[in-house]
């Protein structure tokens, strides 16, 4: 499978990374190198093999469904690039 420039642009869009038009050919070519390497996996017979979900066979722990944390708005916002009036601030989303 070969990735063309428009697929590379689509992937960049999905990943929310701005890639300039003139950088697309090089990006597509790198993707093809890596995917070519990955394609070796097609040689493996995986019929009837379950995809791994957890590397250690253990049941994840459960806990009581109760509030264990909270009331630390200032700490949550402390590292925000733009926080106002107790909220994260972002560019206008809704017209």
């Amino acid at each position: 499978m070969s990735i063309d420039q428009s697929t590379a642009a689509k992937v960049a869009k999905l990943a929310r990374i701005k890639v300039e038009e003139d950088a697309l050919p090089a990006l597509a070519s790198e993707f093809n190198t890596i995917l070519g390497f990955i394609e070796q996996l097609n040689e493996v017979d995986v019929d009837g093999v379950e995809p791994m979900v957890s590397v250690t066979p253990m049941r994840l722990k459960r806990r009581e469904d109760v509030v264990t944390d909270g009331n630390q708005q200032d700490k949550v916002l402390a590292n925000a690039p733009d926080a106002r009036e107790g909220f994260f601030a972002v560019p206008k989303v809704v017209e």
């Binding site: 990955i38 996996l41 995986v46 093999v49 379950e50 791994m52």
Partner: peptide, 13 residues
Amino acid sequence: YYNRARRVRTLIK
């Protein structure tokens, strides 16, 4: 890709 890789991971383990 992803599911195939996870199957191969099962075989590696």
